[in-house]
Design a protein around this nucleic acid. Structure first.
Length: 567
DNA sequence: GCCGTTTTCGGCCCGACTGTTTTCAGTCG
């Protein structure tokens, strides 16, 4: 059975119920059940077979029956009947900022609007303003929201949002009325996809700060302007929210605005059980605000170890913090060397020499050069004679440049039959080999999995490169039984790449913890095609942190001697 | 729809901002 599809259906039922105007707690129950399944470590099918589904928090009789129904028939009759009542296309309207389920319900019932296109047309035709609860401004807000959605789908890469945040932060820092300033929200949690930038400021003169923010050179349009919260669209299109609070409220607000929403809900639930109340202004026992000086103390007051922002996704971190079993997360300074760099030999822009000097400047002990292999003709893949030439150059540079060791690697295509791209005599001469899929993306899940499994059984493969092949916001990964790939990597003692290129961030952080528990180790690779690209390693470290990884899980943290031994 | 050492019924996290309202619903995070 397809667990992801089941989760999607449960979420869709939740939204449809909201649009219908049902008891909001009923829809919440569906969202909760979907989340529970999403964070499930165990195999859902065995839970069903052993009739243990009901033991899960948030799944009672009704949802248990519906999940079993999906397991046995592949569909849920309740969902089908909801879809017969309300068109599924209503769900896409939820993506437009500023429009929620209640308004969607009214639009459908009163005007028969079923999708974004019809809504846009109705706005242009001025048909919304007569509806109860609607007006001129609502209609304009919807139209703006639709434009925004159509242009950007409201989603940005972490690296893009990070760049915007940097620009605004450096502009605001000149303001003398600001005491503390920090990026919060999903950006602080280092999510791979960002919907908006949240900035938190403490100041005793909030209005001054707001004025400066709203008049910055980056502002294209103001969405909201209040006393403690304002929102804008930047010229680049991304939404930025600024919250200003008093200095004594800073730790509570920072925790609150960092999220995630789900983490905060769980935190407030915990505080409530302890007889406390939590919000962005404090932690209260009755009327008394319990004073803390930073987030560390705030978590401590709730009986928890400090939870790093990257882990705040309500995926077991609160339980781990309560029983002192949080991981000691990897950080940038643990990285001693990097793998996966392209040069002018294939499709890179920099010479090996330039890369080596840059790596040395960045403080790395070693750098793995991995150009494309011969089948990657579109990327100038290396023929045997090119390899020999490259190896000579590397030998020469290793003698010339001290302090950084250049490793002879290759990013070998994993061919359609699962084999690597050179004969054995050549394969055995590399220091290490990254194997990646670059062709025949359309294979069935079974065939693609077999292809990669075969590569993982190849004694010459060291690292499995960008395991799903996804390109964030533009291309889905190929169909793959990722659990099987993880098992096979563990069995053959193969390393899985965390591709740090901001367009990839592959393997996904949600799978890292699972793979780690199976004993898999990881290599962070910038997949750099120029000098600047070497700095992308930081994005990979962020993803490793989100995946609960510690220095011993990541081979980039080994020193050069140990790396040579490992390879 | 779920849940229970206050509970099997009556709760379910909390607050800011906007717009359409004359005191609040909807949306967002």
């Amino acid at each position: 059975m397809d667990k992801n599809q089941l989760i999607e259906i449960l979420n869709k039922i939740g939204v449809l119920l909201e649009i219908k105007g049902e008891n909001p707690f009923k829809s919440k129950a569906y969202y909760n059940a979907a989340r529970t399944l999403e964070n499930l470590d165990e195999d859902i099918e065995s839970l069903i077979r052993e009739d243990r589904l009901k033991d899960l928090k948030g799944i009672g009789d009704a949802l248990n029956k519906k999940i079993i129904e999906y397991y046995t028939t592949g569909r849920i009759e309740y969902y089908e009947s909801l879809k017969a009542e309300l068109p599924e296309s209503l769900l896409e309207i939820m993506n437009v900022p500023g429009i929620g389920p209640k308004k969607i319900g009214v639009l459908y019932r009163q005007l028969g609007i079923k999708n974004i296109g019809e809504l846009e047309y109705a706005c242009i035709e001025n048909r919304l303003i007569e509806l109860p609860g609607f007006g001129e401004k609502t209609q304009k807000k919807f139209l703006d929201g639709i434009m925004q959605y159509k242009k950007y789908q409201g989603k940005y890469l972490y690296s893009e949002a990070y760049g915007q945040a940097e620009e605004i932060l450096s502009y605001l820092k000149s303001c003398k009325d600001i005491i503390n300033i920090e990026v919060a929200g999903s950006l602080r949690r280092k999510r791979e996809i960002i919907r908006d930038v949240d900035i938190l400021v403490s100041s005793s003169k909030p209005q001054e700060v707001m004025d400066i923010f709203l008049n910055g050179p980056y502002v294209r349009e103001t969405i909201a302007a209040g006393e403690t919260k304002s929102s804008i669209y930047t010229r680049y299109g991304i939404q930025v929210d600024l919250r200003v609070i008093g200095p004594e409220e800073y730790p509570y607000a920072l925790q609150y605005f960092t999220g995630s929403k789900e983490h905060n809900v769980a935190m407030r639930h915990r505080s409530k059980e302890m007889g406390l109340k939590m919000n962005e202004y404090g932690l209260f026992r009755g009327e008394e605000n319990i004073q803390v000086k930073d987030e560390v103390e705030l978590y401590k007051m709730l009986g928890l170890d400090f939870i790093p922002p990257e882990l705040r996704e309500d995926m077991g971190e609160i339980e781990a913090a309560a029983n002192h079993s949080l991981p000691y997360l990897i950080s940038d300074k643990d990285i001693k060397g990097i793998f996966h760099v392209h040069t002018i030999y294939s499709d890179g822009k920099a010479t090996i020499e330039e890369i080596a000097y840059k790596a040395k400047e960045l403080g790395y002990e070693y750098i793995g050069i991995t150009d494309h292999s011969q089948s990657a003709f579109y990327a100038g893949g290396l023929k045997e004679e090119d390899l020999l030439r490259q190896w000579d150059e590397i030998d020469h540079l290793n003698e010339m440049i001290g302090g950084v060791k250049i490793l002879k690697g290759i990013e070998s295509d994993i061919l359609i039959d699962g084999s690597l791209d050179y004969p054995e005599e050549l394969l055995k001469r590399f220091d290490f080999i990254i194997g990646s899929v670059h062709s025949n993306f359309g294979l069935s899940e079974y065939n693609m999995t077999e292809r990669i499994v075969k590569a993982l059984q190849n004694p010459y493969l060291t690292i499995l490169g960008h395991p799903t092949g996804r390109l964030l916001l533009s291309r889905e990964g190929y169909k793959l039984d990722i659990k099987r790939v993880i098992d096979e990597a563990a069995r053959n003692n193969k390393i899985i790449e965390i591709n740090a290129n901001p367009y990839r961030l592959d393997m996904d952080w949600r799978m890292l913890k699972i793979a780690k528990e199976k004993g898999v180790r990881f290599a962070i690779g910038p997949d750099a095609h120029n000098i600047e690209g070497l700095k992308d390693v930081k994005y990979g470290v962020g993803i490793a942190r989100k995946g609960w990884l510690e220095p011993q899980d990541v081979i980039n943290c080994m020193d050069m001697e140990d790396i040579i031994k490992l390879f």
